[in-house]
């Protein structure tokens, strides 16, 4: 089975920083605690200006958008791992952005929470929240099924196996970098 992710997209623009992904007042939630992990998901992207609409409906813990489409420098700002975790916990499987802030990108791989795909061009103006899209992992393609347009993606490269394994620790064990747990 070729690997794909398909579903409605949520569209944001450039420089979405970690305070918009998960505002500081929710940072007392500890992501490694399963109950608080769920809660973090329910607050994902709650710091966005209201014009974007609701990413997670009030009273829900999950979003209906498995894919986020963004512009440049997604995830800039703080090093908080709460950011990719909140997105992952809310049900996001992939972000497609023009570029990422370094620590956010790294945290996506370390936690294995979601795939940070990069696209070559400025695509977010060509998407509307709610459009149905498919990410094709083998062809490195993003398809907007609502408009019928197709966009090439940069190959994930060395982080794909890390995220597939479930993050840094799982990958390090799989590849023998650290010993398996007894």
């Amino acid at each position: 089975m070729p690997k794909t992710i398909r579903g409605p997209v949520f569209v944001v623009d450039d420089n979405i920083d970690t305070d918009q992904i998960i505002p500081a007042e929710y940072l007392t939630l500890v992501p490694s605690n399963p109950e608080e992990y769920e809660k973090l998901g329910s607050y994902a992207l709650i710091g966005l200006p209201d014009r974007y609409g609701k990413f997670v409906e009030p009273g829900q813990t999950k979003t209906k958008y498995p894919i986020v489409i963004a512009g440049e420098n997604f995830g800039c700002g703080s090093s908080r791992e709460h950011a990719p975790i909140a997105l992952g916990a809310s049900g996001v499987e992939a972000v497609v952005a023009q570029s990422y802030a370094r620590i956010f990108f790294r945290n996506c791989a370390a936690t294995g929470e979601l795939y940070p795909w990069e696209c070559e061009t400025r695509i977010y103006p060509e998407f509307n929240t709610g459009d149905i899209a498919t990410i094709d992992f083998d062809q490195n393609l993003l398809i907007n099924e609502t408009t019928g347009k197709t966009y090439p993606l940069r190959p994930l490269g060395e982080i794909r196996p890390v995220i597939e394994a479930g993050g840094l620790f799982a990958y390090a064990r799989q590849t023998g970098m650290i010993p398996n747990r007894a």
């Binding site: 090093s79 908080r80 620590i103 370390a110 840094l168």
Partner: peptide, 10 residues
């Protein structure tokens, strides 16, 4: 440099 929790745990 700044890192996330998982990297820091490592």
């Amino acid at each position: 440099t700044g890192i996330g929790n998982t990297d820091a745990a490592f």
